[in-house]
């Protein structure tokens, strides 16, 4: 059965853009903020992609896991490691970010001072603000795709639109 949330937009937008287009101004602001999270230059894109994938695995968000982001350079073996929560193959900075990503969706009260301090040392205060905001919105995006029952499209994220 077609998803009524995604039938309102002409052309060929992603399901997420089509759903948000029910509120065009909301789509515009959501897109601007989300793309800035990725390309503000404060946190490496690869770190963000690892965190996005791990949060999607935690939620079992298959529509989010189907999104591809080749530019981030995450290999299939690394993706498999994320799926089984094996962070040992990643760098210290990536592990520090993934530690927070692991806790953000359901265990945010378990995040401790040392974990945040480690991230602050590695990414600076501006990078930490960017990373934590990104984790929150990766969580939001997985949740929206699940609640809205968006399909697995397998689209490439190229930094110009929501997928």
């Amino acid at each position: 059965m077609p998803n009524p949330l995604v039938n309102l937009v002409p052309g060929n937008p992603s399901a997420l853009e089509a759903a948000l287009a029910n509120r065009p101004e909301l789509l515009s602001h959501y897109r601007s903020f989300y793309l800035k999270l990725w390309h503000g230059g404060l946190v490496p894109v690869r770190v963000l992609e690892l965190c996005r994938l791990r949060i999607a695995f935690i939620h079992g968000a298959t529509a989010e896991l189907a999104v591809r982001h080749r530019q981030a350079g995450v290999a299939d073996l690394e993706r498999d490691a994320l799926a089984r929560m094996d962070f040992s193959v990643f760098s210290d900075a990536e592990q520090a970010a993934l530690t927070l990503a692991e806790l953000m969706p359901h265990q945010h009260h378990a995040i401790d001072d040392a974990q945040v301090d480690r991230v602050r040392q590695l990414f600076g205060e501006s990078g930490t603000v960017n990373l934590l905001a990104a984790l929150a919105f990766f969580d939001v995006t997985s949740r929206l795709k699940l609640v809205w029952a968006l399909p697995e499209e397998g689209l490439e994220f190229d930094g110009t639109k929501l997928v």
């Binding site: 509120r23 101004e25 909301l26 602001h29 959501y30 601007s32 903020f33 800035k36 999270l37 503000g40 404060l42 600076g124 205060e125 501006s126 930490t128 603000v129 960017n130 905001a133």
Partner: peptide
């Protein structure tokens, strides 16, 4: 004041958050 460390980014956030509240 904390998120002001990433003021450019958070400008986009506050625009989004304002849209949530002010319209719809």
């Amino acid at each position: 004041s904390v998120t002001a460390h990433a003021a450019d980014l958070m400008g986009h956030f506050f625009a989004l958050y304002g849209e949530f509240w002010q319209n719809g």
